[in-house]
Computed example of a mutant assay.
Amino acid sequence: MQNYDDLLKANLEWVETKLSLDKDYFKNLSKGQNPPFLYIGCSDSRMPIDTFTQSEPGSFFIHRNIANQVFPNDMNFLATLEYAVEQLGVQHIIVSGHYECGGIRTAHEKCRHSAMISNWLMPIKKIEVEHKEELKLLKNEDDRLDRLTELNVLEQLKHIFELPIIRNKIESGEYPKIHGWILDIRHGNIKEIDIPMEEWKSKGIIPKEYEK
């Protein structure tokens, strides 16, 4: 485990390495950002998306919270989304969950938690109740938690599509493509979640103008 001083030492080593490869690396990095991706992920310390994708700084504009939730009244998230879409012009929005998510497991457990944590995770409990028959068919507890993780990503994707800023962009004809991911922490792979496009269009969740 790293201690505090190790972090500062590692930073100096990283700077030296970067400058040895490109003396203008930080000069160019400081000129501004133009990330193609907005990444909405979990706060879990094991989920650095740049590491999973071998991406350099400047690739992802990032918003993270416990269990990658999208709330239409979360001003922090909404400001991040608006800035990414309107100011940075991101080309893709990715909502990503991950297996072995502590937030998902905590929402699933039947024990008491603080009011703040319980309120934050309540929407996941509702997802579990809504899909209890499907989840009941899975005999293994880990399989049920994995499926709940996937269902949670799908629910957050619905919320993204239903936000006015996204609907307006889609209806204008110029909009970012929207994706759902699961980071498989057990194997390191990224799994794409299939969005039921036609079903959601028929229900009005996705505007008819949206194309992948």
Rank of each mutant, 00 (worst) to 15 (best):
Q2L: 12
N3R: 13
Y4D: 01
D6W: 03
L8I: 07
K9F: 01
N11W: 09
L12P: 04
L12Q: 14
V15Y: 05
Y25L: 06
S30H: 06
N34P: 00
M47P: 00
P48H: 10
I49S: 12
F52D: 02
P57S: 12
F61R: 09
H63Q: 14
I66G: 01
A67F: 13
N68G: 01
M75V: 06
L78R: 04
L81F: 08
L81A: 06
V85A: 07
V90K: 08
V90P: 09
V90L: 02
I93P: 03
G97F: 01
G97E: 03
R105T: 02
H108R: 08
C111D: 13
S114V: 00
S114K: 02
M116C: 08
I124D: 01
K126P: 06
V129Y: 13
H131P: 09
E133T: 12
K139W: 05
N140P: 00
D143H: 04
D143Q: 13
D143F: 01
L145E: 07
D146F: 15
R147C: 00
L151N: 05
V153M: 07
H159P: 00
I160A: 14
L163N: 12
I165P: 00
N168F: 01
S172Q: 14
D194R: 13
I195M: 11
M197Y: 08
E199R: 14
E199M: 06
G204E: 10
G204P: 05
P207I: 08
